[in-house]
């Protein structure tokens, strides 16, 4: 294989990833909101007794499973949020924030806080997860568009 063939092969990799980014790697706002809702429910669940907690976790897990199934049906693919690449630090940061929010919900439960602040914490988690999902997708697209195989 000579230099031109090697460069052409690497360019082919960058080209297909760019095309993929432009054609497929984008999601509607409702998809980000649905992810935020799942995260918000998981956080909210931590502020309740065992039974309502389990019910909320089951609903959130069912929502998560539905999102995976719907992604495959609608887009013909699935991208795991924990994938290696430029998105991983952002994923881990988002998980850390969600765990912290869940921790505050647990504190609220033991401190006997009323429902309003618990809902407020969950709403904040929803907003952060929604924005996190939007930014995650942007980072993912940027990674695909940047190419790099030929560099």
């Amino acid at each position: 294989m000579n230099q031109d063939e090697a460069r052409s092969a690497l360019d082919g990799v960058d080209d297909i990833q760019r095309e993929f980014a432009l054609a497929c790697a984008k999601y509607p706002f409702w998809r980000h909101a649905a992810f935020g809702l799942v995260m918000g429910l998981l956080v909210l669940a931590q502020g309740f007794d065992l039974l309502p907690k389990m019910a909320l976790v089951v609903v959130a897990m069912a929502g998560c499973a539905w999102l995976v199934t719907d992604d495959r049906r609608r887009y013909g693919m699935f991208v795991n949020g924990y994938r290696k690449g430029r998105t991983l630090p952002w994923t881990l940061a988002l998980v850390a924030v969600m765990l912290a929010a869940g921790g505050v919900e647990v504190y609220a439960y033991f401190a006997g806080w009323s429902l309003a602040p618990k809902l407020g914490i969950a709403a904040a988690a929803f907003a952060v997860a929604l924005m996190g999902s939007v930014l995650w997708t942007r980072i993912y697209r940027r990674e695909l568009l940047a190419g790099g195989a030929a560099k």
């Binding site: 990799v13 993929f20 887009y75 013909g76 693919m77 991208v79 994938r83 690449g85 195989a149």
Partner: peptide, 16 residues
């Protein structure tokens, strides 16, 4: 190119 695509997703459908 197939490997490059699949390397960026968990899985992808044949038609895609």
């Amino acid at each position: 190119q197939i490997a490059a695509l699949l390397g960026k997703v968990s899985d992808m459908e044949f038609a895609r």
